[in-house]
Simulated scan of single mutants.
Amino acid sequence: MSDQPFTPIQDVGRQQLIDSLKQFETSVSSSLLKGIGDDAAVFRISDYLSGLLTTDSLVEGVHFDLVYTPFKHLGFKAVTAAVSDIYAMNGKPELVTVSVMLPNRISLEMLHELYSGMHSAAHFYGIDIAGGDVAPTLSNMIISMSAYGTAGSDRVCYRSGARIGDALCVSGDLGGAFAGLKLLMREKNVWKERGDDHFEPDLSGFSYVVGRQLVPHARKDLIESLEQAGITPGAMIDISQGLANEVMYLSRASGCGVRIFEAALPVAPYTRSAADELQDDVDQFALHGGEDYEMLFTLPENDVERFAGLFRDFVVIGKIVPPEDGILMQTADGEMHEISLPG
């Protein structure tokens, strides 16, 4: 038996895994301004312009299920996931490259549908698909997207810029994507139990949350409005892994505490209806659901009202506090609870 230590990857949390890999980060090029630890790497193009580069992967059986995910929707979602990281840096995406690992059960027609969805997303975000790679695999399908973008050097937004007293803001609404996923999984289980190839899923009345799961849209409009207003958030991160996770990442990077007000969490009526249908806690959807691709960002208090006059689709859900105050959520009845991650 080898004396070498063996730590199963599944026993290591995502953030701990990323932290462990930082020891291998290089600093050969003086143009690299930010490597591991944010939504995208940042590098110098000129005194006035920074480049942004990010990679995002979707793995069948982990991030998507082809039983209920149309290939065209999957292609759109893959592009959204990549460009959302560029927007999270307050940047403008310009192009993506695509690498797809394909098992033999995927046909040419399916691949064309996948790329059709990517093509639609490219038009929506105003970007180019600039090539990539296609390779075979003996296991599940994998899609890897790299996105490149730019931002003014004085407008790049990191996770580390939150300041005590800042308002903590969220765009759009939360929990809808997870509600949609739960409904799709429920209907898949019913289909498997019945063994009926002609089974029709019962998703009537839930098109909003199913759409949030299958065809999410990154917040291009928020970034454009921030630029129009001449406002740069102190810190920003996209909500792909759930609000609680992203709050912790932002808090850790900025060295601050966070106070969230439960009553302020933005949840759409359609998401509440879905949670009622599933007999589940909608606040847990909002806190831990993920894949909403909304933005979590901080603004100085005097910028909040000014920005609200231009852009209405955001709410203040809390504030930045000293680090010794921790990461707490205040319930509607005034009680304080520490925000923790499930599992």
Rank of each mutant, 00 (worst) to 15 (best):
P233S: 01
A162W: 12
V215W: 07
G37H: 03
V321A: 10
P70W: 04
I127H: 04
D292R: 03
S153K: 11
I239E: 03
M185D: 02
E60Q: 11
K22T: 13
Q228G: 00
K77N: 09
D11R: 10
L53C: 06
S50C: 14
G126P: 08
M1H: 00
P5Q: 06
I142G: 01
N245S: 14
S107R: 13
A41T: 13
Y293F: 15
L74E: 03
K92A: 10
H217K: 09
L138Q: 09
R14F: 13
G257E: 03
A130Y: 08
L226Q: 00
G37N: 01
V42A: 10
F261S: 08
M336D: 06
G37D: 02
V96F: 07
S225L: 01
E187G: 02
L58G: 05
F71P: 01
E301K: 15
Q241F: 08
G255S: 14
L108P: 07
L111C: 07
T137E: 05
L184P: 01
Q4A: 13
S57E: 12
A177Q: 00
N104A: 15
T331C: 02
R159I: 13
R312I: 01
G334C: 05
I339L: 15
D292H: 04
L296G: 11
E246G: 09
F43L: 10
Y158C: 05
E335R: 08
Q10C: 09
H217T: 11
R163Y: 03
P201G: 11
I164N: 12
E246N: 15
D202M: 07
V59L: 09
S57C: 04
V247C: 13
L17M: 11
P103Y: 07
Q228W: 05
F24V: 06
D3R: 00
R159M: 15
P269G: 05
M89G: 06
L53H: 12
K77S: 14
E324K: 04
K22V: 02
L214T: 07
E291M: 06
G149A: 04
C169T: 08
G326W: 04
I18G: 01
L214Q: 11
R219M: 04
E335D: 09
L250H: 10
L181M: 07
R159G: 15
I223P: 02
R212F: 14
D197T: 02
A244K: 15
L226F: 12
K34N: 03
A147Y: 02
A332G: 00
G131A: 11
M295E: 14
G255D: 12
G165V: 11
L32C: 03
E224R: 07
M145Q: 03
Q279S: 13
L114D: 05
K220H: 14
Q16G: 12
Y293W: 12
E335F: 00
D280A: 15
M89R: 15
V28S: 05
A275G: 14
I327Y: 00
A275T: 13
L181R: 00
D325E: 15
L49K: 03
I231Q: 06
M110L: 13
G176H: 01
M89W: 10
L66Q: 03
S225H: 04
S139G: 05
I9F: 14
C157T: 15
F71K: 00
Y68T: 03
G195L: 04
T150R: 13
L33Q: 13
I317D: 10
H63M: 02
P70G: 05
S99G: 11
